[in-house]
Amino acid sequence: MNIVVCVKQVPEVSDADLEINRKGSDIDREDLEFEINEWDNYAVEEAVRLKEAHGGHVTVITLGDEDCEDVLRQSLAMGADEAILIDEDGFEMSDAAGIAKGLHGVVKDLSFDILLTGVQSSDNSWGQVGLILAELLGLPYASLVVGIEMGDGKATVFRELESDTQEKVELPLPAAMTVQTGINTPRYVSILGIKKVRKIKIKETDADELNLSEDEIGAEGSCVTSRKLVIPSIGGAAEMLTGSLDDICNKAAQIIQDKGGLV
């Protein structure tokens, strides 16, 4: 069984003080660390687990600059067999459809049973690439997947719904799915693991090779245009406490008590 996983490199922002660049087009990426998009990491793990259980071949694809090789190497270390990097030149300012077109250029020529992406990316959070890609390929599609069971020519898929409920759906193969976090526990990738896949060659391609013209991708080919990133102004209900640690704690305790939180 062959599986294709589309992954993305994103900035790691959990502990960073984010700033928006002067043009307002993006966050200031200098001094940031980068990592694989959390959802995509679950997707790669799921693909490797399916391969371990049923045999087959896992291909990971990303669209980005050459630094994104790290994300591909990590996926290879997790157990993927092959990696393809689509150069981001020409894709700048693309909307989700533009990115999906790029991925489609590669995926359409691959033979596979399951196509996985994360539900969304942690940086742009459109949550559209997987869906558009499925549409371009004409594949049955399930979103928010938290469980996959393989059957004969079909897959039984569990989708996460509200309040701990799940929907069980059946898809004929090949099919596309977007993976929700929590579907598994992604494995740890050791430094030795990454060193071991150092020699695997990563295939590279670009918009030209994929016959994508300027009016299909990039700013021109996009229906949605990002105008500006902003940091929302601090609302009235928020109060920043200042002072020493003890002062802050006392004030916080007082507020909680006043609001009826501490009895």
Binding site: M78, T185, R187, Y188, V189, S190, L192, G193
Partner: peptide, 10 residues
């Protein structure tokens, strides 16, 4: 366990 990666404490 580290090299296998799947049973690591989170």
């Amino acid at each position: 366990v580290v090299e296998q990666g799947t049973e690591m404490p989170d």
